[in-house]
Simulated scan of single mutants.
Amino acid sequence: MQLSGVITALVTPFNEKEDVDFDSFGKLIEDQLQKGVRGFVPLGSTGEYYAMNAQEKQSVLKFVKEVVGNRATLIAGGNAGSTREVVQNVRAAAELGYEAVLLAPPYYSLPSQPELTAHYQAVLDSAPVELVLYNYPPRVGVEVGFEVMDAFADNPRVIGVKESSGSLARAIDIKTRYGNKYQLSCGSDDVALDFLLWGAGSWICGPANCFPSQCVAIVNAFDAGKIEEAQNIMRKMYQAMSSLETGKFVQKVKYGCELNGISAGPTRMPLLPLSTEEKREFQKVFELATV
């Protein structure tokens, strides 16, 4: 699988009863496709997978696959707290026709690097899927370190890494150490343009839910060699990106969808709604980014 362009880490729209709102979900996906997004990750961090049961996760993966079909790249989120549960998630995704999965280390258990290597190998042995490693130590407490990446550098089914550590130096190290053995995908939204300059070929992007045109325009401008144009777009978006990075990321992204005219509904607890003041502040930077 070739990872390119903006790949949206989809929110999961909920209605006021906190059931999955498939009508809004379909509208969101179609809007994304119309605006040039090249792929989707359902059940990623932005999709609140951790707050959903197995049946709900299955229904989301099935719905996204049916709506998107072959119109865009699809990568299933399969994260969980144990190898056993991750394997179950990955097998379910493969049965629905997903050819690739995005996996961070299991959370809470804090596996060592050899344990994490064994974890990913068990997943690869369980289903015929390609794997995108997901380095997000602020969320899971463990880095997908070079010991793990060395172990899979020559495995053709381990195709890339979504780098969400926030460290540009880490992205540079990955490209310097591995060259084209891993496809590098940006997962640190406020430095996305920097990642592109250092060899990222795609941007797996939560903010694209509410800023699809702007995120696509940055990548398209960069690909066309129009670096100054890409800088100008990112400059307009920077306050919104910074706001997202300060906290309540999912709530703000969902509110941004609402500002775009597509309801994404509430977040599930423990995430609480934005206050009136928080909405007002995010709307200001949203408008600056979309003017």
Rank of each mutant, 00 (worst) to 15 (best):
Ala9Ser: 11
Glu16Met: 10
Asp19Met: 13
Asp19Cys: 11
Asp21Trp: 13
Asp23Leu: 12
Phe25Gln: 01
Gly26Arg: 14
Ile29Thr: 04
Ile29Ser: 02
Glu30Val: 09
Glu30His: 14
Val41Tyr: 01
Leu43Glu: 04
Gly44Asp: 02
Ser45Cys: 13
Glu48Pro: 05
Tyr50Lys: 03
Ala54Thr: 13
Lys57Ser: 02
Leu61Ser: 02
Leu61Thr: 01
Asn70Pro: 01
Ala80Pro: 02
Ala80His: 08
Ser82Lys: 11
Val86Glu: 00
Val86Tyr: 00
Val87Pro: 00
Asn89Thr: 05
Val90Arg: 00
Ala100Gln: 05
Pro106Phe: 06
Tyr107Asn: 08
Leu110Gln: 15
Ser112Pro: 10
Glu115Asp: 14
Leu116Gln: 08
Thr117Asn: 12
Val123Glu: 00
Pro128Phe: 02
Glu130Leu: 06
Val132Trp: 04
Asn135Thr: 15
Tyr136Asp: 06
Val142Tyr: 06
Val142Trp: 04
Glu143Gly: 08
Gly145Leu: 10
Gly145Tyr: 05
Glu147Arg: 15
Asp154Leu: 12
Pro156Gly: 04
Arg157Cys: 01
Arg157Thr: 01
Ile159Tyr: 09
Ser164Trp: 02
Ala169Asn: 15
Ala171Phe: 02
Ala171Tyr: 01
Thr176Lys: 15
Tyr178His: 12
Gly179Ser: 04
Asp194His: 12
Asn209Pro: 10
Asn209Ser: 08
Val216Ile: 07
Val216Trp: 00
Ala217Cys: 04
Ile218Trp: 07
Ala230Asp: 05
Ala230His: 08
Arg235Phe: 12
Ser242Val: 14
Gln251His: 04
Cys257Ala: 06
Leu259Gly: 11
Gly261Lys: 07
Ile262Gly: 04
Gly265Thr: 05
Arg268Cys: 07
Pro270Asp: 03
Glu278Ile: 07
Lys279Ala: 01
Glu281His: 08
Lys284Asp: 05
Lys284Phe: 05
Lys284Gln: 11
